[in-house]
Every structure is written in structure tokens, then in C-alpha cells.
Write a protein that binds this DNA or RNA. Structure first.
Length: 432
RNA sequence: GAGGCAUUGGUGUAGCGGCAGCACAACGCUCUGUGGCAGCGUUUGCACCGGUUCGAAUCCGGUAUGCCUCCCCA
């Protein structure tokens, strides 16, 4: 880093610029998301980056980790509290209700792509500013077919991005009728064991008992395996819903793992929850232990915001994580290089006329690169080569007088002099 | 919020108490009539603040950031 008057010249912790050399990855991902969205009729929505704090506090749950310690809160001088959005769904439900989007048809399928902000310790696949793309189906009935559609769309996206060894974990966390019962059973089971549990689990027992099922501590595993299973405790409606979702997935030949220990950190979920993982291993043996995508049904969130119908389901993918896995798997981006020509001038007269000449090509839709600031022929040819151009146009003193130009094929060195008036057609012919 | 390891030009690295070096990249020249090669040259650095010392990139403390882990998560 060169000397600067700024003391600490750095983007904030966990927030990274996306540099030109990484843009092809992002282009690829955006391209596939647009394709999937169009394919399944999801309409793009962009909501604001900042919401009133209560939008998240009320929806994600006051005791959720995100709300308790991960939100970037901004206070205005008038005392309003705003939050940089830590996730996408709450804002979209807000917009859905605010703008009466239920009038656009039921259910409404929406997708989004944009930055999210969480004040966490940066770590593998985790950043303070990161990007998510999500698919939401809201309104209409709380029909299992929509759960399956969201899962399918995300699965196809991962597949199209050539991510290998995808596994889908799915579970149901019940509703406000059956979940409290299960919770009681779980607490009843764990309370006598409290002394033997790890410290985190003792906390979970008080704060969020369902999360006991998440514990990775070895000593806690044996208790977990004996613990009551939520799937055995679902009410009729929830268990039928789950059965239907699974049936749809089976019809699609989409394999899944029924993971009765999958619980999610956000309060607004009910019934279906799911996560996508990959078993991709990078060349240096690194595994990807984080979820690539996740989601679930959020009927209560719709209710909380006062939507007409209490039905919503959606999922989101973490784009930085996708890119990491794609890089590790050496996914070939196969981005087509735009064909184009490189313009070279020799001599004062030719240089003077070059801008206008290039403009006439660009007007005709021919992409032109140049390094007009360099005057030496060698230097310009080197630039042309570095840019990977297929053809070079050489416009010198002689050509300027004769109203002609040289078209040179950079690969084989074959070149031809053509009259200027034929330039556009000759170039187009070669670029085809 | 807690812990471990790290930080030397744009990138990758050597130096580990005594002259900051190398490779690649970038830029220029050889090169105003034909490039990729080559030769020559130029630019750019010890993260920051303080301490120890005759002397610090090197040892110590703090801060920042990065990587990794816990918590949690996309």
C-alpha cells in the first residue's frame, strides 16, 4: 500500500470490495439467478438496505442471535433507530404489505439479490457484508407445493452453477399448536441431564431449547440421540404438510435427508425448514461446513405484518459461499469472450483521425479496444496481444492518405488492406 | 462477545537484532510500418502506534486487518 494521509486505509472489517478480476464469477451467478427466476416466474424486487429496527426485532425474535448481537444499528438525530438489513425476507414482507402487492396475484413469487449486513466475527464463508439471493412465494394458501417449488428453484440454481454433491436437509419444526408441546417434552427430557451438558447446552435449555438439537459437542451427542424427536410430535396438520412436501420432492426425484435435528435460528419459521449443503472438497483438502442455502415456511411472519393471507415460504442462497465452492471445484465459467478488434495508429495524421474512425465502428456495434496514448507500433501491438484481441486494425500515414486500413489477423499474421468505406462490412464479416 | 495463528511493493515470497532482496505483474525504452520472445531501465514495500536497544522488518506491548475456531449463521 502506498503512503497515504489516511491513517487506516481499509474497508471495514468483514466487508470486501468486489474487484474486476472477481466480477466474472458474479456475472455468472447473476446470470443463472435471472434464468431460474424467469424459468419459475419469480419477479424481481429490490427493497431498501435499511429498515426500521422493529421490522427485524419483531420478526426475527428479540432473543435471536441476529437481533441480540449482530445488527448494525444506526440512530438518526431525531432518535429513530434503523438497521442495515441482516436478511431479506422481513423487508420483502414489509414491502408486500405496504404496497398491497397481494393485488398482483396470489400467490406472488418474488426474488431478490443484494447485500446483507451482520456484525459477526468474520470466518470461513462468513462476512459482515455479504450477498444473498432469495426466492419467496407469498400469499395464497399455505400449500406444500410451494415449499417444494422454492426448494426446486434453489436446487436447480445450485445445479446450474455446477455445484457438485449437493445435499438437501429438511425438517418440520411444527406450528404454534404442536411446537410448544414438543418443547415441553424436550425440556422435560433434558432438565435432569443439565449437569452433564456442555455450557452452551445449559444456556440453550433456558433460552431456546430447540437449539439443543444443534449441539456439536461430543459429550452431548449421546443425549441427543435419545431425545424426543420432533417428527413424532407434530400435529396432524403439520405432519400432513411435511408428508406432502416430501411427496413432491420424491416425484421430482430430488433426494433429501430427513434431518430431525435441523432447527433454524429465526423465530418466524413454522413447519418446513431446509438447508442445502455441499460435500465439495477443495484441492488443498478444505471442506465446506456451512450451508449454501436455507429457508423455510414463514406463515406467522405474514400474519405479524398484517398480510391478508398468512402464507409464505422462501429460501436464500449465500453468494460468496457459492463462489468459494465454485472456485474450489474449479467450475469453468465458460463466459464467452466478446469478439472485437484492436485499433492501432501510426503517425500524427492517423492519430488525429483515429477517434472518429473508432467511433464509426462503435456506432455500427463493433467493440473496439485501443491504446491511443501509446505511439509506438510495437507497444500498441503488445497491448492488442495482451487484450486477447482477434483482429487488429492498423491505420498509418500511408493508409490515411489512401483512405484505406489494414486488417490483421493476430493469430496467424495474415493481413489485408481494405478501403475505409468497406471497413465496417469487412470487420463484421470476420467477427462472425 | 471469547480464543489461536498471521501481516514485508499490485501479487507471491526471502531476510529473524546490523545496507530490505528476489520472482511475477505494471510502466517505459530498444520499437513511427508489424506483436507475443528478448535485452535494458523505471515505479511501488517492512499494517499502525508505542517500548526495549548504540542499532528493530526482526524482540516486547497495544491497535487494526486477514485466516481459522467457539457461539451463531447464507
Amino acid at each position: 500500500m502506498s503512503k497515504s494521509k489516511l491513517q487506516n486505509l481499509h474497508s471495514p472489517k468483514g466487508m470486501h470490495d468486489i474487484l474486476p478480476q472477481d466480477q466474472p464469477w458474479w456475472d455468472k451467478i447473476r446470470q443463472e439467478i435471472d434464468y431460474i427466476a424467469d424459468y419459475y416466474n419469480f419477479h424481481r424486487i429490490d427493497t431498501v438496505l435499511m429498515e426500521r429496527a422493529e421490522i427485524f426485532e419483531k420478526s426475527l425474535g428479540e432473543t435471536s442471535d441476529i437481533v441480540e448481537k449482530e445488527m448494525f444499528v444506526l440512530k438518526s438525530t431525531s432518535g429513530d433507530r434503523f438497521v442495515l438489513r441482516p436478511e431479506g425476507t422481513a423487508g420483502i414482507v414489509r414491502a408486500y404489505v405496504q404496497h398491497g402487492l397481494s393485488h398482483l396475484g396470489q400467490p406472488l413469487k418474488l426474488f431478490y439479490l443484494g447485500p446483507m449486513f451482520r456484525k459477526e466475527q468474520p470466518q470461513a464463508g462468513r462476512f459482515r457484508q455479504f450477498h444473498q439471493a432469495g426466492f419467496e412465494i407469498m400469499g395464497g394458501d399455505s400449500d406444500a407445493v410451494y415449499d417444494a417449488q422454492v426448494i426446486l428453484a434453489i436446487f436447480r440454481l445450485l445445479e446450474n452453477l455446477k455445484i457438485k454433491d449437493i445435499s438437501l436437509h429438511i425438517n418440520s419444526i411444527g406450528c404454534r399448536i404442536c411446537r410448544p408441546n414438543y418443547r415441553k417434552k424436550l425440556i422435560a427430557y433434558y432438565r435432569p441431564l443439565a449437569a452433564k451438558l456442555c455450557r452452551d447446552c445449559r444456556n440453550r435449555l433456558k433460552q431456546n431449547p430447540l437449539r439443543l438439537l444443534d449441539c456439536k459437542n461430543e459429550d452431548c451427542q449421546k443425549f441427543k440421540s435419545e431425545a424426543p424427536i420432533i417428527l413424532d410430535n407434530l400435529c396432524v396438520s403439520c405432519s400432513r404438510h411435511l408428508k406432502h412436501v416430501l411427496e413432491f420432492l420424491e416425484e421430482l426425484d430430488l433426494s433429501y435427508v430427513l434431518d430431525n435435528q435441523l432447527v433454524r435460528g429465526l423465530d418466524y419459521y413454522n413447519k418446513t425448514v431446509f438447508e442445502f449443503f455441499t460435500n465439495t472438497v477443495s484441492e488443498d483438502g478444505r471442506k465446506f461446513d456451512f450451508a449454501l442455502a436455507s429457508g423455510g415456511r414463514y406463515d406467522y411472519l405474514m400474519e405479524l405484518f398484517g398480510a391478508r393471507t398468512n402464507a409464505g415460504v422462501g429460501g436464500a442462497v449465500g453468494l460468496e459461499r457459492l463462489i468459494e465452492v465454485m472456485k474450489a471445484a474449479k467450475v469453468n465459467l465458460s463466459l464467452r469472450k466478446k469478439p472485437g478488434v484492436f485499433f492501432i495508429h501510426i503517425g500524427e495524421l492517423a492519430k488525429k483521425r483515429s477517434l472518429k474512425l473508432i467511433e464509426s465502428l462503435r456506432d455500427e456495434g463493433v467493440p473496439v479496444k485501443e491504446s491511443l496514448g501509446k505511439d509506438s507500433l510495437g507497444a500498441q501491438l503488445r497491448s492488442a496481444n495482451k487484450e486477447g484481441s482477434d483482429y487488429t486494425l492498423i491505420f498509418g500515414q500511408k493508409e490515411a492518405f489512401e483512405e484505406s486500413i489494414i486488417i490483421r489477423d493476430l493469430k496467424n499474421g495474415v493481413q489485408e488492406t481494405v478501403p475505409l468505406r468497406k471497413l465496417v462490412s469487412e470487420v463484421k464479416k470476420r467477427l462472425k
